[in-house]
Structures are given as C-alpha cells and as structure tokens.
C-alpha cells in the first residue's frame, strides 16, 4: 500500500531538505520512492508543495485530493489551503507560525483566525506545535524543517536512530549537531 506525505509551506522555508531527508530514509528502508518538487516562479515567496510517496511500487509522482496520509505544513494557512488533500483518517502536522501573504500585507484580505480549530472541526486530526521557537532553541530559525521531521517521526515505525542517521547523511557536517538537536526537540521524547 502506497503511503503519501505532502510537505507544504512558503517558498524559501526549506521544504527541499525535508523531502530530501524523507526520500533518503525511505529508500534506505527498502521502499520504492517518488519525490516531486516545485521549482521556478512559485519559489518566490509563493505557496509551495512537495509530494513524497513510498510503497512497494509507486506510479504517480503527485498526490491528489483525499490521498495524503500526512500533510506536514511549515505554516498554518498553508495547512488549511491543502487540507482537501488529506485522506480521511489522515493527520496534519503543522508549525503554528503565521506568514502573511501579499493580499494580507496589502490589506485586501485578513489572515484567517482559529484555523487549527476549524481544521479539526472539519474532520482533520491536527498536531500543531510552535516549531520556530523549538528551531531557535536548537540554534537556528532555519531548522524548522527538521523540527517538523522530528514530530512526523513519532507516527512512523522507523526507529529514531534511522532518522538520525539519515540527517547525518543529508546535511553538511557543520550543521549535523544543530539538526540532530532540532530533530530531538521536534520528536519530543
């Protein structure tokens, strides 16, 4: 059975490292894997989405509505934007950080309130946490991606050591300690 993880956020937040880590880990675990990224114009502060799919044999590189086992969101509004992609019974793991999009900045729209509660009311299981604060505690605001991976790892049968090994193999040596710390804070054991 193919499992689907969507990673969503704002262009420039570091979702490519998260998908690289997942792809590397899942391939090592013996799965067929596909990871689909977005390059180009959307990266300029736009809404970005990365698809990670794994199983015995994966065909489609993308995930469609109602198919995601997990939505990992770097930003609250983006979690809500992609909620329809969540499989019934799936889970949203979300960083509670708010980043105003241009229509909010210009005053043409307001940033929606109580999104976590609204997503839960609409039937989604939501695991929300302030990853930015944890990332800063680990040593860098940029480690939000690995904090989220730490949180996501709680829902997998893959032992923490395997995730930690994948981090060592995917990030430059001088950032390994910082990212291991971020992973630990995100996993919260």
């Amino acid at each position: 059975m193919t499992k689907n993880i969507m990673i969503v956020g704002v262009g420039g937040q570091g979702s490519l490292l998260a998908s690289k880590l997942l792809g590397h880990l899942l391939l090592t675990e013996g799965y067929d894997v596909k990871v689909s990224e977005v390059h180009g114009m959307s990266q300029r502060g736009g809404s970005v989405v990365t698809y990670v799919r794994f199983g015995e044999k994966v065909y489609s590189p993308v995930i469609d509505k109602g198919q995601a086992d997990f939505i990992v969101s770097f930003e609250k509004l983006e979690a809500a934007r992609y909620m329809e992609y969540l499989k019934k019974g799936g889970r949203i793991v979300v960083n509670t950080q708010e980043i105003d999009p241009m229509p909010v900045i210009t005053g043409a729209a307001a940033y929606p309130e109580n999104l976590i509660e609204k997503m839960e009311a609409a039937g989604a299981a939501v695991d929300a946490m302030d990853c930015l604060t944890l990332a800063e505690a680990a040593g860098s605001a940029k480690a939000v991606n690995i904090v989220l991976m730490g949180r996501l790892s709680r829902y997998f049968d893959i032992p923490a050591e395997k995730w930690q090994q994948a981090i060592r193999e995917c990030v430059p040596p001088k950032f390994v300690e910082l990212n291991l710390k971020a992973f630990e804070l995100g996993r919260g054991e």
């Binding site: 704002v10 990266q43 019934k88 999009p101 997503m119 609409a122 989604a124």
Partner: peptide, 16 residues
C-alpha cells in the same frame, strides 16, 4: 477518494 473540506475563504499566496 472522498475528502473533508474547510468552509473558509483563504487568502491566496501568489509569488512576490
């Protein structure tokens, strides 16, 4: 597949 929807108008996030 079926899916749950959020009854909320969300502001877009165009590239800038």
């Amino acid at each position: 597949p079926e899916y749950n929807t959020l009854d909320e108008a969300l502001p877009g996030r165009p590239p800038v």
